[in-house]
């Protein structure tokens, strides 16, 4: 948990004079919304980058030239599994894992 992104105001006196957002939304772990988890079969993966391109939550990250799901933020919409032309991604129910 990267808590260094968090901002705490202990009193109204610490608030900025106008409401300016200074923090990053990385504090919101939207992965908790997920009911279906994408599982990538790296043997079927042809590294086309389509899953990365179409992810609305920027949750497919490229690690060592291979796609990886960032489970802290993936909401499990399933666009990656639906768009993968090689059927390398399947959606699995969270409770079954």
């Amino acid at each position: 948990m990267p808590d260094d992104h968090e901002i705490n105001y202990n009193s109204y006196k610490e608030l900025p004079p106008s409401p300016i957002a200074t923090g990053s939304s990385l504090v919101f772990k939207t992965g908790g919304w997920r009911t279906m988890r994408p599982i990538i079969d790296l043997e079927k993966c042809k590294k086309c980058g389509i899953c990365w391109k179409y992810c609305p939550d920027v949750s497919i990250i490229i690690v060592e030239d291979l796609p990886k799901v960032d489970l802290d933020y993936c909401k499990g919409c399933g666009i990656c599994a639906n768009e993968c032309p090689f059927d390398a991604i399947v959606m699995v129910e969270e409770e079954s894992i």
């Binding site: 990385l26 086309c48 980058g49 939550d57 920027v58 490229i62 796609p67 666009i79």
Partner: peptide, 22 residues
Amino acid sequence: MKLTIPEQELMEKGHMACLGCG
């Protein structure tokens, strides 16, 4: 990996959009 669109991200993870938001 050959990417067809720029790699730079200016939208962070953790936003509040619904699942599959266009």
